[in-house]
Design a protein around this nucleic acid. Structure first.
Length: 272
DNA sequence: CCCGGAACCTGAAGGC
DNA sequence: TGCCTTCAGGTTCCGG
């Protein structure tokens, strides 16, 4: 499930491979991915545009086009982007972007949740997102002012894209474990010390995952088809029943807002 | 405004 | 073994 570190990894991989290339056409096997245009209009506006640059906002991948417009992709649950040619007959390829050097970029997405936009202004899509957790100006005080306004469970607040952009189920669990905070705690009940710890662990958990090339839980792959490695350093996410790294207690899972939340019942106590 | 729940999808996993 | 149900997950939309 691609979250901030996975999308950042894809962005960096594609920056070295497809920036400067120009689109020659798009084949859509699942047109419902298009969020704001018909396939015909989408093709018409994309063809002959070149990729000036690639950026990321939250979990959104943003391609700056030479005409000033913006192509935006969201991988949702099961999406991945591939530059390898071996996947042309893969039944889960939903879209194929062709380039003027003969290369193809494949959008693979078994569950068909992925989304594609072509817009004049990226704010039409990413305008409501909260701040980037890895930005210089996302300080402990920023986090503090955000959390004091929310009574929902801290885990749910961390995963709310309009509050902070890019954090999902896996990295919320990892950051809360590293900060020794029970995931169902109300966000506005965290102490100053806990907020400082959480700010610190969000930074380290996300950066460590980026340095590992993202986590290949489920269908995530890098554009060259390789897996990420971040799942191997997960302490709690998808580790149900395994012994906690710090104390040996088996990792448990509880639903928060219907989402599986992994934690150590001893290191992350309800009343700390 | 805030919350909860359904919908979107399909492969995997669990139940009998 | 095999059919059937449930679950997982991010985002959007709808209702209370």
């Amino acid at each position: 499930m691609p979250e901030l570190p996975e999308v950042e990894t894809i962005k960096r991989d594609l920056e070295t491979t497809i920036v400067g290339l120009c689109f020659t056409g798009v084949t859509l096997h699942w047109p419902r991915m298009l969020q704001n245009l018909t396939p015909e209009a989408f093709n018409r506006r994309l063809i002959s545009q070149c990729i000036d640059g690639i950026t990321r906002r939250g979990k959104y991948l943003i391609f700056q086009l030479s005409n000033g417009e913006t192509l935006i992709l969201h991988l949702r649950m099961s999406g991945s982007l591939r530059l390898d040619t071996a996947c042309s007959y893969d039944p889960y390829i939903r879209a194929i972007f062709g380039f003027d050097n003969g290369a193809n970029l494949y959008f693979r997405d078994p569950r068909k949740f992925g989304m594609i936009w072509l817009v004049e202004d990226e704010k039409q899509v990413v305008g409501k997102l909260g701040p980037e957790p890895l930005d210089q100006d996302f300080t402990s005080d920023t986090l503090k002012s955000i959390l004091k306004n929310h009574t929902a469970p801290i885990k749910a607040v961390l995963c709310d894209q309009t509050v902070i952009a890019g954090i999902g189920n896996m990295y919320a669990d990892e950051a809360l474990f590293a900060a020794s905070i029970y995931p169902a705690r109300k966000a506005d009940s965290l102490s100053n010390d806990e907020i400082k710890r959480l700010h610190c662990t969000l930074d380290t958990v996300l950066k460590k995952a980026i340095n590992s090339g993202g986590a290949s839980i489920s269908d995530y792959r890098r554009p060259d088809g390789k897996s990420g490695e971040a799942q191997f350093v997960f302490k709690v996410a998808h580790q149900l029943g395994k012994k906690c790294d710090k104390c040996g207690t088996p990792i448990e899972r509880i639903p928060i807002r219907k989402r599986g939340s992994y934690f150590c019942p001893k290191c992350q106590r309800k009343n700390d």
